[in-house]
Design a protein around this nucleic acid. Structure first.
Lengths: 196, 196
DNA sequence: GCTAAAAAATGAACTAGCTTAAGAAATAAA
DNA sequence: TTTATTTCTTAAGCTAGTTCATTTTTTAGC
């Protein structure tokens, strides 16, 4: 499936649109390839785009005062990613957005998004829906972080996103789950020993 | 200012509307009073409403397996609160939403919200904007939780929301910041000693 | 297939923050 | 004013998770 076909398909799952409307929507996006470790967004620069992942995986992370990377979000096929604080308010970013593996994305510029929303209320509805779902999913993540132990967080993550477990480096998963690499390693190997 | 005037004012800050449109919007809401500790939303029941706080303060929290309350969100004048996972998908709630002090809110039912959005794209835009802002603010919170120590989290919270510090019980702040009451107490008193 | 680099594992020493428990203060109720 | 309830403080012991230093394994480039 072509990138543009993919996003049109995604759009159609959320709102009902005519063929012409779908075409207008698709034309607002631009296909782009990021190689592993390449940065899409960097702190101090304003996030000009939001990204829809066609293939591969990206993540956003913040670097703390100790130089540690804290993964804020992960995105695979059919997910969206950007630094929302930067993109929405068009202010300098605080996050990095980086390709975890070689990836194909569709980028939507802030200006194009405004044009889409102004042109057709259906697109406004679309962006409202994805923002709301993002909000709900962030709420779930916050709850997990506040209420579960490191081991429980990993267990649930692995159950919820099995596709990540084998496809992305462990140190990224650890940082997404808010624990050190070493500790995640300990959890994993401890589990193996106890099972056998 | 009357409750309905307040929310119309809030609406006008986000989107341009005519007097009639504003009136239609205001009519979708219903004023309601919650007394301190009263519950607006409870687990297992579906969240029928989202709440706009006119006066007072509310919070949402989840109870973990140990019976500890983990505060997910706080809301004061001009803020919104609900269990988004429950409200958006109309599924059973997992959170409590409780009044911290005697409060006046405007409640918007799920049905009324759908009607508003269907009736006028400007309302669709309005809800898109508040969802996006919620998303950005959740992102900020997640970053704070992942990158800062308990003491730093409190420092920043106090700077960002001074109005909360004296107005809501310490144990709620502690649970919002993801630490025990005792530990927050230690931080506060330790700070006093070091300053003098 | 070899080499260099990146990622994962291991273990020991350490610490931030939690738990428990008991008392003091503050607030509300009567 | 007294009593009851809720909130806050203090301190000691504990544990989940970190840090650091080293080794092993995997991956990627040539």
């Amino acid at each position: 499936m072509l990138p543009t076909e993919k996003i049109i398909h995604f759009l159609q799952q959320k709102v009902e649109v005519t063929t012409e409307e779908a075409a207008v929507f698709g034309e607002a996006f631009q296909a782009k390839i990021f190689r592993k470790k390449q940065l899409a967004i960097q702190p101090t620069f304003t996030a000009k785009y939001r990204y829809y992942v066609v293939k591969g995986a990206l993540r956003s992370f913040i670097m703390d005062h100790k130089g540690e990377e804290n993964t804020i979000a992960l995105a695979i096929e059919d997910w969206w990613i950007t630094d929302y604080n930067s993109y929405i308010y068009q202010q300098p970013a605080t996050l990095f957005v980086e390709a975890i593996s070689n990836s194909t994305v569709l980028q939507l510029s802030y200006e194009n998004e405004q044009k889409l929303k102004a042109a057709n209320p259906k697109f406004e509805t679309f962006f409202r829906i994805i923002a709301e779902r993002g909000l709900a999913s962030q709420q779930r993540r916050l709850i997990a972080n506040l209420t579960q132990s490191a081991e429980e967080r990993y267990e649930n993550f692995a159950k919820l996103y099995p596709q990540f477990v084998n496809e992305i480096p462990q140190y990224i998963i650890a940082s997404y789950l808010g624990m050190s690499t070493e500790f995640l390693s300990k959890i994993l190997n401890h589990k193996l020993n106890c099972k056998s």
